[in-house]
Amino acid sequence: MSCSRRKLLKSAMTVTLAASLPASAFRFLSPAECRAATGTEGTRWGFLIDTNKCVGCGFCVKACKKENEIPYDAPVTRTWVERYVITRDGKTHIDSPLGGRDGFTDQKIRGEELVKPEDIAKTFFVPKLCNQCENPPCVQVCPVGATFQTGDGVTLVDRDWCIGCGYCIMACPYGVRFFHPVHRVADKCNFCYHRISQGRQTACVDACPFGARRIGNLLDQNDPLTRIIMTEPIAVLKDEYGTKPQAFYLGLDRNVR
């Protein structure tokens, strides 16, 4: 068998290179490992609301107000529950007394309008809270840098830095921001940032007896919330605004705005 010098050197080089490769170079990486390697490993908080489960008890609103020190009787709240009663003639009757803080105990809509039970086509309760948008318009308009998005996707308000101009309150298409009557600054739901940072659930999720609310990490594919969002039909509020809301809804009716 003849072997030219060129061929020998070539083969020797190939063998040397192949031998220097570790076996781990041929291993398949899990999605989690890929994310870690590309630097996108981390947390992105998301929320899931199941309108098929909500009965309008309002425990979430009560818990939110007490946990986050929002004046209990002031007409402001970080989360609220809306009642929708759709009648057979296609009309929509909506109310949210005190944001649903004390639940819905009266058949009358807004305490005055009595819809006859035989006229009702469908009814549902829709809890709402800050959508923690991927592109938050409220942050874009802040003239002083008092509101911002954290690395894990939650929009916060810096109470020491806010001048109370109210631009962000006007900019939010979902109306989740309000003027805090005590601190005199803009305020909004922050997914109970102090609780989720400690590994707890938000106060509203803990308070809900019916499992209508969930919070989870959208970057963790094994998170139960992420699995539902990946595998089940979900909707978001006001998709057309391009804000990319991260609060997702199961069973969202077209009448909900």
Partner: peptide, 17 residues
């Protein structure tokens, strides 16, 4: 565009429930 230490301030908010 913000004050970085505000994140920590929110994390240190008192848990009540």
């Amino acid at each position: 565009f913000h004050r970085l230490s505000n994140v920590k301030e929110w994390q240190d908010f008192k848990v009540k429930y």
